[in-house]
Amino acid sequence: MVEINPSQRLLEVHLAIGGDNLGQLETLSQIAKRHGAVAAVNGGFFNSSGGLPIGALIKDGQLLSTEDLLRTAVGIKENNQLFLGYYDPAKESIPNLKHLVTAGPLLVLEGQPLWQGVVEGFRGSILKRAARTAVGVDKQGHLLFVVVDGRQKDFKAGLSLEEMAYLMVDLGAQSAAALDGGGSSAIWVKDKIVNRPSDGKERKIANAFLILHQVPVYLNEKHLFFDAPPEIEKGRVLVPLRGIFEALQAKVDWDQSTATVTAVLEDKTILLTMGKQEALINEQKVWLDVPPQIRAGRTMVPLRFVSEALGAKVIWQNNPPAIFINK
């Protein structure tokens, strides 16, 4: 289980799509790593053959898929507030809604377990004990992401939807809903899957809810994600080398023997050496406040220096913290 305080500084609950394209599938680990997440769980139901979501899907305020199913939707509003309920995108809009998937059933309301699975049209083995994923909110407003293992002989049988509702109540949920379950149920925390998926390995899924704890970086208004979250040192933001250079469309070359990286974009050539505050732009020496460095196996470079050296403009926003790169 992952419990988060949605008002925590720099925290963001984000919906990510497999391969960043509807219809593509990825494992939860792959999706989480690509975004530099600190935690993640699987998202809504999807068609396993085509990978398309079952029901509606909204990402970053954009309606990407619509199908009016009389099922509970799980949404994330501004300030990481949880929305649970029926939503017909063709008929209504929810203020400040950022992300949404059709999921269900609704498990908990007003701190009480519900029995809605049958009327939400669930049937077959979904109604039996299985691995489950659910999201809820407790009295303090904390979000609870819960995964239960199941259908593994000599390990865990799993829970029925009703039992899952009671579990969420026991965990303090005032309201809660189920996400996709069974072999899709997975939870990823700090670089690894911490449950035992019932397929025996991670299933490729269509979407996932990610917990991000990072300064958001936007390039030409598009949210940029790195495989390691941006870090702040002495007021400077460090980002993974390959991610930022590739986003800026520079060609990157790494020399292991000298721990030197060379980036080339049009008429600009930048040379950075790990641990050194001195850099070269077209062979001109430039002094860095913070040197490039290797952190937890990742080569991190100062974002402002790299971006500006390649001709981009960088704007720091204080509240809420964010970096905007315009090129």
Binding site: L70, G85, Y86, G104, L106, Q116, V119, E120
Partner: peptide
């Protein structure tokens, strides 16, 4: 009527 989901809930 269980009332949910769907209109009029």
């Amino acid at each position: 009527d269980a009332g949910a989901p769907g209109s009029p809930y």
